[in-house]
């Protein structure tokens, strides 16, 4: 008789026929992905009512592994695609799971507008400071002076402070964790799923293969940084959230406010008779 393989509690949420996944050993995406799956499972919401939408990149492959209705769209366009899904069927819980390059360089414009409109979706950004899928190029999140394949002399640019941008654009929920803080991360994702409004979670993650290797960051060293050089400070000022591991990186929940969503305002203003 064949040996019975033990069942993992998240097995139902994985397309097992798509395993093995493409993520490299030491990559942080898988941990963040399982935090997300745990939060989905713990929400108690009917799984049929979830949809995961990704863009392009290593993190963008998440949609291909989750056993929910899932979409692997074009580069940078997960958020406007998700906006169409949510507005056309407001019953759905829409999660955008993608990377920093996808969401904040090519897709940056869509991010700020979805936050401004307060479209009721949850955006999870795996921030690994570079374009992993294409071999490690500079991103809008790459630290100043970091080496990548397109900044061989060091990055002359300044990276985005993502929570600050989300806050400034109008997000109603903003948090940042690392993949090492998977419990806090799961909790934040749970809150974000239940939040009626645009929620944003930044999850810092090692990309040992492409970013770590070029910046003398061994996978374990990076986890050490996550442990030793981070400060949990809920409600920290968004302007203080620049990522600098020498000074210490601030984690926590920074924004959790109420504001009418696009859907609520649209119903109220454009079809008031339907509400009566």
């Amino acid at each position: 008789m064949a040996k019975k393989t033990p069942k993992h509690p998240l097995d139902d949420l994985i397309r097992k026929d798509r395993i093995p996944h493409i993520w490299c050993p030491g990559c942080g995406i898988g941990t963040i992905f399982s935090s997300c799956l745990t939060a989905i499972k713990e929400s108690g919401i009917d799984l049929k009512k979830f949809v995961m939408i990704s863009g392009i990149g290593c993190s963008g492959r998440a949609a291909g592994y989750v056993n929910l209705d899932s979409f692997h769209t074009t580069h940078g366009r997960a958020i406007p695609f998700a906006t169409g899904v949510k507005l056309a069927n407001p019953e759905l819980n829409v999660i955008v799971f993608s990377g920093d390059g996808d969401l904040f360089a090519i897709g940056g414009n869509h991010f700020i507008h979805a936050a401004r409109r307060n479209v009721d979706i949850t955006v999870i950004c795996v921030n690994n400071f570079n374009y992993g899928m294409t071999g490690g190029q500079v991103a809008a999140t790459t630290p100043n002076m970091a080496k990548t394949t397109t900044t061989p002399f060091g990055n002359p640019e300044t990276p985005f402070n993502l929570p600050l941008m989300a806050y400034a654009a109008g997000a109603t929920y903003v948090a940042r964790w690392t993949m090492l803080h998977s419990r806090d991360l799961t909790e934040s994702i749970s809150e974000a799923i239940l939040k009626n409004g645009f929620s944003f979670i930044e999850a810092l993650s090692p990309c040992p293969i492409n970013y770590g290797r070029r910046n003398k960051l061994k996978p374990l060293d990076q986890l050490k940084l996550y442990q030793e050089k981070t400060i949990i400070k809920n409600d920290a000022k968004p302007t203080e959230l620049d990522i600098n591991f020498e000074k210490g990186v601030v984690l926590g929940k920074f924004v959790d406010i109420e504001r009418p969503t696009y859907g609520d305002s649209y119903n109220k203003i454009c079809r008031p008779d339907k509400l009566e």
Binding site: R77, T83, G84, A88, N109, H110, Y262
Partner: peptide, 19 residues
């Protein structure tokens, strides 16, 4: 919905169609 550009417009249309 008036989107932020035409890229977003067609992306939203595809998303809506799948509902």
């Amino acid at each position: 919905i008036q989107m932020e550009d035409e890229i977003a417009a067609i992306a939203s249309v595809l998303g809506a169609s799948w509902t």
